[in-house]
């Protein structure tokens, strides 16, 4: 009668077991439901955990698919969950060896937007982190060339933040031709 009891217990993914064994203090939350493994990592240990995920021979998450961020400022429940951290930096990883994906989330507070850069581990993090900086204003420490990548160089503000007006702040009517390098 009770459907929940009929569902078979899925075996715990290897990645979660290994993270619990080696980086238990960095692991803020985990979820493996619906076939997607998600871990939330404390910002102070993000470099160590990412390096572990890449270099561990059993895990070998060698491919950084995407780096992006989420602005939770209009989602009260998400904000409260991790000590009112407004932003969540998201790393999407893929392991060719295990043919499995992993999503690593890192809460970032609005008053401290610094987070260590992953460019030392994955070269592909370079442009992805530039995009995240451009759109959200996350400051990736140790990035070799943290400039805007999509918006013009003289653009002010970070347009994917929830408090940025959709129609802009008048820049589309008043931008300066001559100042931009063509």
């Amino acid at each position: 009668m009770n459907e929940e009891n009929q569902v078979e217990e899925q075996p715990k993914p290897l990645i979660l077991e290994k993270l619990e064994a080696n980086h238990a203090d960095a692991l803020l939350a985990q979820d493996a439901s619906r076939g997607t493994v998600v871990v939330v990592i404390h910002k102070d240990q993000v470099s160590a955990v990412l390096e572990y995920l890449k270099t561990d021979p059993e895990l070998a998450y060698t491919f950084l698919v995407d780096v992006t961020a989420v602005d939770n400022s209009q989602m009260e429940s998400e904000l409260m969950q991790f000590d009112y951290a407004r932003f969540m930096v998201v790393y999407q990883l893929y392991s060719f060896q295990g043919q499995c994906r992993l999503r690593v989330k890192v809460p970032v507070h609005e008053n401290d937007l610094n987070i260590p850069s992953a460019t030392g581990l994955w070269k592909s993090a370079n442009w992805l982190e530039r995009e995240t900086y451009d759109m959200f204003g996350i400051n990736f420490e140790g990035h070799p060339d943290l400039r805007r990548i999509l918006m013009p160089d003289d653009f002010e503000g970070h347009p994917l933040r929830k408090d940025y007006p959709l129609r802009g702040r008048g820049e589309r009517e008043s931008f300066n031709f001559e100042k931009q390098n063509v």
């Binding site: 918006m151 347009p159 940025y164 007006p165 959709l166 129609r167 802009g168 702040r169 820049e171 589309r172 009517e173």
Partner: peptide, 12 residues
């Protein structure tokens, strides 16, 4: 695309 980044008509 009535957004911050798009020209609302090139005839401007």
């Amino acid at each position: 695309f009535d957004t911050y980044t798009l020209i609302q008509g090139v005839d401007q």
